[in-house]
Design a protein around this nucleic acid. Structure first.
Lengths: 340, 340
DNA sequence: TCGATGATTCGAACCGGTTCGACTCCCCCA
DNA sequence: TGGGGGAGTCGAACCGGTTCGAATCATCGA
């Protein structure tokens, strides 16, 4: 059931079948109909590998994200889902590659073996050799996140600096003076993850600006770590009345820690941060937070990549998003009941 | 930078380069070294499309899951992650296909255009035309989940019937007599999702066996729906003292509903169900539940698929898993304080 | 009535690998 | 010293599409 078989049964040449399908040259109505009948009867579909070999395009984009070791967060899931969906709308498939660094085997497969026409990178680091490598090759790619020098790149980013600062201002406006910052795991911070660094920067600067007393913490991506981290916070400074977090997966643990310490949210303690909206609504009380627009970011990344694929040589474009804080129920004025 | 260029520079024929790389025929050490030098110098990697065309294998497996409309749960994320990782260990890439039904364009692309060597299907229905179609074609595939007649299939399943029943027995043993069941959304139940059906069956039968009074509910996959569902439960029968749920995403909402109704978990109300372990530990109090071993299921599905690919014609195999209930903190003896 | 023109269609080359059969040495044994 | 056999290599065919140049045929104006 290849194009030759179709041609034979329809009594035409292989090239005519190809033209009938692609429409790149005129084919008479009668011939086209004859060919279509045979195709329908046999349920023929052109072989993707052969097509990719012949015209140099695979109609596949690669989605590069870090290996599961640091296990996935809800945000990443939302990215994956929206990327797949947006790609499907453009008739592209999505190939997953779990690669943290440039030298990963899986990353080499994607690029070196030409399995994909372009790539979307997740979990960007300030210094990211994957980004540098692709830029040097002029390989079509779009990053979800920014490196330290994003000027000439293609990316969709979240303004973590501004968002973390907005959280600080929100808390300061409510009268909080002693605030903790709960970051992603230390290992990610050391590796240079941009969200962890920019978020920390934004928090630190805004806190200084407002004259707040702060402490910053790294916290594992799970509930148990969140709980432990909260205990540490209250141990280090029992007068802390609020926290800002980037760590979605730890959120449930932070809440649990507060409840076990007898601090009521938001009466005794305010919690806010940067988290996917779906998660913010899962916890009780619902989290006042800057909602990460993961769905939109994935979609925009795909749109940028398609644009870059369709117009090679087009000037770099990017989107920097800074969603407003959604007021829910986890923050309130400072000065509630002190702990027992 | 194709194989011909390598051959030319190394002063040998294209076939010799191919044999040097594949090892399928002997090549002298000197020739091999010469070829390797050229390859290293140029950073050559064989083109995946050409290779796939020539030997009929793409080294890619398809992962078919439903479109995002019913948005993804944490369980699905864990499946995806573990499948990708397990596939990478076998040198396979993973292509994602958001397809609920057989006729989806994306599904047709995967199979008809031969983009993948085999497929893993998620979110199985009792009557699943994707499964039937693949079985009829004898296309290598493995389902995560079972249809109504799984006898001759390749699958990795969770014994939802037994798990739901175990939850019921756990609650009955604690003395609960009026128990609610919170299922996945009605639309999924109607579509025939196996987990929803088998879970409901197991719950219903075990409840009858133990002489419990029960009500069953469908609930949207989000916190707001969970909260609404819980209100409905207490409205329908305020004497309800426990619930069993399959609905991970609604869990936070169920807890919120209980707290707002003034029911303390587990003193006044017990909650249990079938949920990914990571989620069970996120809520407070931590959920006593049958933990879905998503990571293991994904890995086993890949292993089965690889086995099927390596040994065409091998007899069907499957794994039916029934993890024990993990006792955490969300269930307790019936007869706590009645609500205010 | 003849050449030009345009609409269709065909054959062949090409994309970049893999694989099969055949050929050339060279060594070893009868 | 001739022949068998194995190691190593080459050329050509093939996988299943796409695409370019050229051939065919009917129509139309001169």
């Amino acid at each position: 059931m290849n194009i030759g078989e179709i041609a034979r049964r329809a009594g035409v040449s292989r090239s005519t079948v190809s033209y009938a399908l692609s429409g790149k040259r005129p084919v008479s109505d009668e011939t086209r109909r004859k060919i279509q009948d045979v195709i329908d009867e046999l349920g023929y579909r052109p072989n993707a590998s052969a097509r990719a070999l012949a015209n140099g395009r695979t109609s596949t984009i690669g989605l590069v994200f870090p290996p599961a070791g640091n296990h996935y967060t809800g945000m990443q899931l939302d990215f994956i889902g929206s990327v797949v969906e947006a790609a499907a709308a453009h008739d592209y498939d999505v190939l997953l590659s779990p690669s943290g660094v440039d030298s990963d085997r899986s990353f080499q497969r994607l690029l070196g073996e030409r399995r994909v026409d372009g790539a979307i990178l997740m979990e960007i680091r300030l210094q990211d050799d994957r980004v540098d490598h692709l830029a040097a090759l002029d390989f079509p790619s779009v990053a979800i996140g920014r490196t330290a020098h994003p000027e000439n790149g293609w990316w969709v980013g979240l303004d973590h600096t501004a968002l973390a600062a907005a959280c600080v201002h929100h808390l300061a406006d409510l009268g909080h003076r002693r605030v903790a910052f709960v970051n992603r795991p230390e290992q990610l911070l050391r590796a240079g993850y941009e969200s962890a660094h920019r978020g920390l920067d934004g928090f630190t600067k805004a806190a200084a600006e407002r004259g707040l007393t702060v402490r910053t913490y790294c916290c594992g991506d799970d509930a148990a770590s969140g709980q432990a981290c909260l205990e540490q916070i209250l141990h280090d400074d029992p007068a802390t009345t609020a926290l800002v977090t980037l760590n979605e997966a730890a959120l449930g643990g932070l809440y649990r820690g507060l409840s076990q310490a007898g601090r009521h949210v938001p009466r005794d303690f305010s919690v806010t941060g940067v988290v996917a909206g779906r998660w913010a609504e899962t916890v009780t009380p619902q989290l006042t937070a800057a909602d990460v627009p993961a769905e939109e970011m994935g979609r925009r990344a795909v749109d940028l990549l398609i644009e870059r694929l369709d117009h090679p040589g087009a000037p770099p474009r990017h989107h920097l998003l800074a969603p407003p804080i959604s007021l829910r129920a986890s923050t309130g004025p400072a000065g509630g009941t002190p702990p027992a």
